[in-house]
Design a protein around this nucleic acid. Structure first.
Lengths: 244, 244
DNA sequence: CGTGCGCTTGATCGGGTTCAAAACGTGTGG
DNA sequence: CCACACGTTTTGAACCCGATCAAGCGCACG
């Protein structure tokens, strides 16, 4: 009952909230029509799996709304998030038969899905599509490299601050730096999911958040909604170069 | 004196050792000729910088021979390797003006360079090129995700074993699994570079290598040349699923 | 023969994990 | 409306793995 969304297809692209940034953003009207031939929308509830590692990949697609994660799990249960997927992010890998990672909705998620085979075919003959996918993949690779630095070299406190910065940047764009006013946003992740993102335990995440709260760098309501009175001060805790 | 290689350009592609795997591997003869218009070879000595983070990107290109690393450095000197570049790997990011990371030769390196502007122009109009680059970038992203798991969740011992496995796989292909015989290869990295790769200190790297040696899982000559008597046994130390 | 660099080894320290329990919130049913 | 149960988060105490600080070794090179 939760997996099939009422038909919002006709002309959906025109009002699509991710029209400007998704994999299809460079596509012309006729190319969008071609995509529409094998496109469908689908909704997932918070906590629901979207793809299981090892499963045959039936579709690729874009996150339209909500937050999903990509995680790897070791045999003994150790888990590491390897992707945090937000609206406009692309899910799935053209050219791959079998999914390598688990994809899970952490909030309610709406996806714009494309059946994989026809998508691959269109990709091969549509530079607007493949070039955009290349751009997005290169961006993701850069993000992954920042993430490697975070996991390899940052302290627990720096990791937490970096995650908050990431979420704030994604929410408010690059303008966050200049904003004098207080910044507020909701954490789309549980403490455990944050731990999986940061390569920590949930206890350490909780302790570090408490520490930042105690020091007045953040305040939080209901454990999930964060207020940052002084963005500069938070960013100084990330360990990053003061430019970015 | 080390940066300019005697002219090996004419017909170089025909005997190029990375012809099958580089970014140009799908290109036709005429496309190769176009590439040749703005191509040049260049050699770097072990230890030499290839690109500095923050510099203007003058070229992109392929590693033809040798090993290079991509590293990020924090203000206080903490360093994390975020790419280990082997022959056929692509260096540089089309569409970016300024380099984000340091690229350094760790052995003698021969690069096949393309001036960036004409390369970008050719990329835009040559699907053979952009599709291959997309493939390679997707592969790199997968590799980065494995790396995230390594940095976030693996123990020091598992990290070392994983690195050895990575080098062995890259050297011998996927066939390593079945091979009964002893496997030998040289470490192209110093202990310090390994530490930068693995998010450890060089002391810990040294200790863990000594431990593997003590237990007979590896033997080494002259600190750099590794022999693995039982590949299975080494791979069991990586923490990975026994399939991969 | 000395100097320097890469590597190893030892002793100690500390940040983050682990194990355990309590506190908090949220929803449920009496 | 309260009592209760369950999932999430916080807090506490002890431990441990890897970092840090400090020698010392081995080998290449001038």
């Amino acid at each position: 009952m939760t997996s099939q969304t009422p038909d919002i297809r006709p002309k959906a692209c025109e009002t699509c909230p991710i029209r400007e940034r998704a994999v299809c953003s460079h596509c012309s009207g006729s190319e969008l029509e071609e995509l529409d031939q094998f496109k469908y929308y689908r909704t997932y509830e918070a906590g629901q799996p979207i793809i299981f590692a090892g499963d045959k990949l039936e579709f690729v697609g874009s996150i339209v709304k909500g937050v999903a994660t990509l995680t790897q799990t070791m045999e003994d249960g150790r888990r590491q998030m390897t992707g945090l997927l937000l609206p406009s992010d692309f899910v799935g890998r053209p050219g791959r038969e079998i999914a390598l990672y688990d994809v899970t909705a952490t909030t309610e998620v709406v996806m714009c899905c494309f059946r994989i085979k026809p998508f691959e075919a269109l990709l091969a003959k549509t530079p607007h599509l493949s070039q955009r996918l290349l751009e997005m993949t290169l961006d993701e690779l850069d993000a992954a490299r920042e993430w490697l630095l975070l996991l390899g070299r940052k302290t627990a406190r720096e990791k937490i601050a970096s995650l908050l910065k990431f979420i704030a940047k994604r929410e408010f764009g690059q303008t966050v730096n200049v904003l004098e006013l207080d910044i507020c946003f909701d954490l789309p992740l549980t403490r455990e999911a944050m731990a999986d993102y940061l390569g920590l335990t949930l206890e350490t995440v909780s302790r570090q958040i408490s520490a930042l709260k105690r020091e007045g760098i953040i305040t939080l309501k209901k454990n999930r909604s964060v207020t940052v009175p002084d963005v500069e001060k938070l960013f100084r805790e990330t360990g990053d170069d003061h430019a970015a």
